[in-house]
Computed example of a mutant assay.
Amino acid sequence: MTTHDSPVLRVAGRPVGRYVTRPELPDRLSPRPYLHPVTTLAGTTVTELSPADHLHHLGVGVAVPDVEGHNFWGGRTYVRDRGPTEFDNHGAQRHVAFQLRDPDGFVEELRWVAAGAEVLRERRTVAATELTDTAWALDFTFALTNITSGPLSIGSPATNGRPGAAYGGFFWRARKEASVPDVFTPGSEGEEQVHGTRADWLALAGWGSPRSSGAESGGSWTLVFAGATEATRRDPWFVRTAEYPGVGSSLAHDERLPIPPGDTVVRRIVTVVADGRLGRDEAAALTRKAVTQ
């Protein structure tokens, strides 16, 4: 699925993520650049690519199920009063160029294309920084500009009639393990309490898997997601743990997000990637450091 143009992110000289710019994927998966594998500093993988439960989940990236009816998420499209429906409406995010490319990050230009026309232009900025000997931060900013001559809007299955399914925006598909990961915020815990709420940060903590020959191995891990701008903090969290482990921020939770011609929507998510299972105090302290440094 990779091409020769797949830069590797490094923290203190250690590889922590591979960014695939031109994946070879079928149209139904809404081809788009993604980060996978992403690892902790100790080498534990904390992303998953095209798992059997959702083939269109591609590591870490930006995915939107409804841009004026075009599917940039992959899979089926949710239709009000009809449910998930198979359509030939999939768009693709196409890498154009890197404006900046260093071992610890890059600035990239992308074009969002559907039905033979470009609907959005994106500027994506990604940076990896060391926090401690056991934690680093992924700083991910995306800016979507409507380059068409008319207004467009971003929607989700929730805005199209499916309660609780306001996915679309930054999305991190974590590795599925034998045990369901824990999820918590500064004031709540558990998928039912956390999903759809607004919080300064949200932590997903996995148990890891035993080391054995011939199998992927790794220790326990924690991901702490934080909205690093006022606009991003207004977006509720989309969370899954029981069905699969995934976290994202919802661009269109209660209503569609309009983008007039020439306007730009900007979101910035900073994710702490840590070895071990962090408590609330540790998660909060590392998040403050990651967002402000």
Results as ranks from 00 to 15, higher is better:
Gly164Asp: 10
Arg256Cys: 05
Ala166Met: 07
Val270Ile: 10
Phe170Ser: 04
Trp172Leu: 01
Ala205Met: 06
Trp112His: 10
Thr271Ser: 13
Thr77Trp: 06
Thr148Asp: 13
Arg267Tyr: 00
Thr264Trp: 05
Asn160Gly: 10
Ala92Asp: 14
Ala215Arg: 15
Arg18Met: 11
Arg240Trp: 04
Arg76Ser: 15
Ile259Val: 00
Leu49Trp: 13
His70Asn: 13
Asp88Trp: 11
Val272His: 03
Val119Glu: 01
Leu41Ser: 11
Leu131Asn: 03
Gly83Gln: 09
Gly17Tyr: 09
Ser217Gly: 10
Glu48Val: 06
Leu49Glu: 14
Arg82Pro: 08
Arg101Val: 03
Arg240Ile: 05
Val266Gly: 05
Tyr19Asp: 00
Trp201Arg: 06
Arg121Asn: 06
Val273Gly: 02
Arg94His: 12
Ala215Tyr: 14
Phe87His: 09
Glu243Cys: 02
Leu55Cys: 09
Gly219Asn: 12
Ala42Asp: 01
Arg94Ser: 09
Glu192Cys: 11
Thr229Ile: 05
Trp221Met: 14
Ala143Pro: 02
Gly196Val: 04
Gly196Leu: 03
Pro151Leu: 07
Gly155Glu: 06
Pro15Ser: 11
Ala63Lys: 05
Ala283Met: 00
Arg175Asn: 13
Thr287Arg: 06
Thr241Asp: 00
Gly208Arg: 03
Leu257Phe: 11
Gly262His: 02
Trp237Gln: 06
Gly206Asn: 05
Ala285Phe: 05
Asp139His: 14
Gly190Arg: 08
Leu35Arg: 00
Val113His: 01
Arg234Cys: 07
Val180His: 05
Phe225Val: 01
Gly196Pro: 03
Ala114Lys: 02
Arg18Thr: 14
Leu35His: 04
Asp88Ala: 14
Thr44Pro: 05
Arg22Asp: 12
Leu100Trp: 07
Gly43Val: 11
Ala283Ile: 01
Glu108His: 08
Thr47Ser: 12
Val96Cys: 03
Phe184Gly: 05
Ala128Glu: 02
Phe87Met: 10
Thr2Phe: 13
Pro103Asn: 02
Met1Asn: 08
Ala128Ser: 10
Val183Leu: 04
Arg234Thr: 12
Ala203Gly: 03
Lys289Arg: 07
Gln93Met: 00
Pro31Ala: 01
Val11Thr: 11
Ala165Lys: 12
Asp200Leu: 14
Thr145Leu: 12
Pro65Met: 11
Gly13Lys: 06
Ser30Glu: 09
Gly187Cys: 08
Phe225Gly: 00
Ala228Ser: 10
Ser179Gly: 14
Ser213Thr: 13
Arg32Ser: 02
Arg124Gly: 06
Gly196Tyr: 00
Trp172Lys: 01
Ala127Pro: 04
Asn146Gly: 01
Ala290His: 02
Trp221Tyr: 14
Tyr78Arg: 03
Ser220Val: 05
Leu152Glu: 01
Arg234Gly: 08
Pro7Gly: 12
Glu177Gly: 00
Ala231Tyr: 13
Leu100Lys: 06
Val16Asn: 08
Asp27Phe: 09
Leu286Ser: 04
Phe87Gly: 05
Thr264Met: 07
